[in-house]
Amino acid sequence: MKRFLYHLVRLMLALVFIYAGAVKMQDVVTFAGYVAAYQILPYAANYLVAATLPYIEFIAGVLLLLNVRIRPALVVIGSMTLVFMVALISVLFRGLEIDCGCFDPGGGQDVTAGVALLRDIGLMVLVVLTWWLRTSGRDEERGTWDEETLS
């Protein structure tokens, strides 16, 4: 049961981060605009973040999907989520309107900082849960889980 749950949360996290990374990779410049809207980094640094972050998210997601290097991938994903949460809290405190608020041809709704923060808390819970299931599962069933693929 624990093993099933482990694979379930692992795959959920993997898909979330692969999707998040892939979408942002499609349009790095627009993503840079979103980063800039947080008004945390200097102008050029927004582009540096936009040019690298989606790829890190994507690779970490792929590792989770393939069930290799799980704990390093979780450390990376957890750290990124933590940084996002701090950024979102700072946005909330400064009362910035990071929503586009303009006409969207795709019809999609922008996500407010509060909703995004709640979503990040959910992701953080999944990260911790995956770590815990991964570690305790291996302790309990030492020898039955394949050490090579899980390490």
């Binding site: 102008y43 050029a44 927004n46 540096l48 040019a51 790829y55 890190i56 590792l63």
Partner: peptide, 22 residues
């Protein structure tokens, strides 16, 4: 290593954008 690899990958594909920005 994962972060470095991801950053390198991203910079390889988007280096012109970053150079222009900086």
């Amino acid at each position: 290593v994962l972060i470095a690899f991801g950053a390198l990958f991203g910079l390889t594909l988007n280096h012109q954008l970053v150079v222009d920005a900086f």
